[in-house]
Amino acid sequence: MEGWDPNTKSTLTQIPLLTRKAGPRDGAAWTQRLKEEYKSLIAYTQMNKSNDNDWFRISAANPQGTRWTGKCWYVYNLLKYEFDLQFDIPVTYPSTAPELELPQLDGKTQKMYRGGKICLTVHFKPLWAKNCPRFGIAHALCLGLAPWLAAEVPILVDSGMIKHKDDTATTSTES
């Protein structure tokens, strides 16, 4: 795992791995996979809470579990910046990772594709491909979103692109 910080590495190894290679078009096999996704997400969320590093909420937005919505946040200079988080499970999942979107930041940073999809590091896709089908939604959040927030939120705040929601003196923009 070249190119990852030790924190991400040690967290990653504690997230339960998945076994079923099934996507949203695979019927009963997808239901099995979805159960594994839940177990992995439950374990990861619990782990974050007990490590005092709670940083996201995510739930399925439809009964098929193909669309997920929630929130994620990052603390910078003692202030908490919170963003909507959403993504679809692609038809070719888990061969391809879900494309994580932060729609409120669309157009505010170069490190983002259109529609608010975060631009992942060169290390993400190779690691995901190598570990298919063991990695799931929890791994995508840990390897994709967490490092992205850590790298981009400070830049967005320092450059004034986003304001803290209590910072009403300068602008009414919600962050």
């Binding site: 239901t31 099995q32 979805l34 159960k35 839940y38 177990k39 997400l41 439950i42 969320t45 619990q46 809470k49 909420r57 995510i58 739930s59 399925a60 929630g70």
Partner: peptide
């Protein structure tokens, strides 16, 4: 081999959330 119920898992995640 798992006997987990999907709905039950969903509720568990919601509870933690």
């Amino acid at each position: 081999v798992d006997n987990d119920d999907l709905e039950d898992l969903r509720r568990q995640l919601e509870a933690i959330n």
